[in-house]
């Protein structure tokens, strides 16, 4: 096995071990979407009527509608959690081990990203299994098609987390990420309501939602769950991933990036 794959395997196993050791993190990652699914959706199902929109071919309940958004939510929070642990690693010093390795920094950051994606995919499938216990089932092949979609959306959201971690000076500043990144991204997307619903109240908000990368991540997941392909969402996700990843690599580059400014 060459050095690149050795490092990849070690980082993925390390993240998996860290995740499994933090049972509370695992539970929190599941409880959050389940509360939305069981409590929020139950309360709003009457208020939020839905018409038939692709990929659905019939009327669906609100619980069914928000499942893809909650899958995205798991990955969004996981991406930010990874970002938080990167900032923590920077403060504690262990990030320096990665940054001073003789392997390319961009590769090691990508390994970190992949490790986070692997953990988020595990969380999504556990969530879907629990959702099935509540009677929310999806087309059988949808669970399979979901897998590559989750890799792509996980990479995009993880790269966003990576980018954020390269700009944050201290762990205390991370609360701002919750307010200025996670909540706006989640609420201004199709996770909880379709775009046409948003347009009814504000066309401007609808346009903002349409520009939100998380909207396209959710739509890619939604279509994959129903065995369909959404090319526009795929392009958005790939493009955003490329931009976020490139900016992250620049951010962690000591010659050009934000690491330099963070120290100053």
């Amino acid at each position: 096995m060459n050095g690149y794959l050795i490092a990849l395997r070690a980082i993925v196993l390390r993240e998996a071990m860290r995740f499994l050791n933090q049972r509370s993190r695992f539970l929190a990652a599941l409880v959050r979407p389940l509360v939305w699914l069981v409590v929020f959706a139950a309360g709003f199902r009457a208020a939020l009527g839905l018409s038939i929109i692709p990929p659905y071919q019939t009327y669906i309940t609100y619980e069914v509608y928000i499942v893809p958004g909650l899958c995205g939510m798991i990955q969004l929070f996981n991406g930010m959690q990874s970002s938080l642990s990167l900032v923590y690693d920077q403060e504690m010093g262990s990030m320096r081990l990665l940054l001073t390795s003789r392997l390319p920094r961009s590769w090691l950051l990508f390994c970190k990203l992949l490790a986070g994606v692997a953990v988020s995919i595990l969380q999504v499938y556990v969530f879907l299994a629990i959702a099935a216990l509540f009677g929310i089932t999806l087309p059988p092949m949808g669970y399979l098609y979901l897998f590559p979609a989750l890799i792509l959306t996980g990479l995009m959201l993880g790269a966003l987390g990576l980018l954020i971690s390269s700009t944050i000076k201290q762990l205390e500043n991370f609360a701002g990420v919750m307010n200025f990144v996670i909540f706006p991204m989640f609420f201004m997307s199709t996770a909880l309501y379709p775009l046409w619903k948003m347009a009814e109240s504000s066309p401007f908000l609808r346009d903002l939602c349409a520009l939100n990368p998380f909207t396209h991540a959710v739509e890619l997941i939604r279509f994959a769950l129903y065995e369909q392909f959404n090319g526009a969402a795929l392009l958005w996700v790939l493009a955003c991933f490329a931009v976020f990843m490139a900016c992250s690599i620049i951010g962690y580059d000591p010659a050009r990036g934000l690491m330099k400014r963070k120290r100053g």
Binding site: N2, G3, Y4, I6, A7, R9, R14, S101, L103
Partner: peptide
């Protein structure tokens, strides 16, 4: 800190591309 001495050393070796 949650890894053993040997696990720490193996992890670092892997970060250097060694196994």
């Amino acid at each position: 800190l949650d890894l053993s001495v040997m696990q720490n050393l193996r992890y670092f070796a892997a970060l250097q591309g060694l196994s």
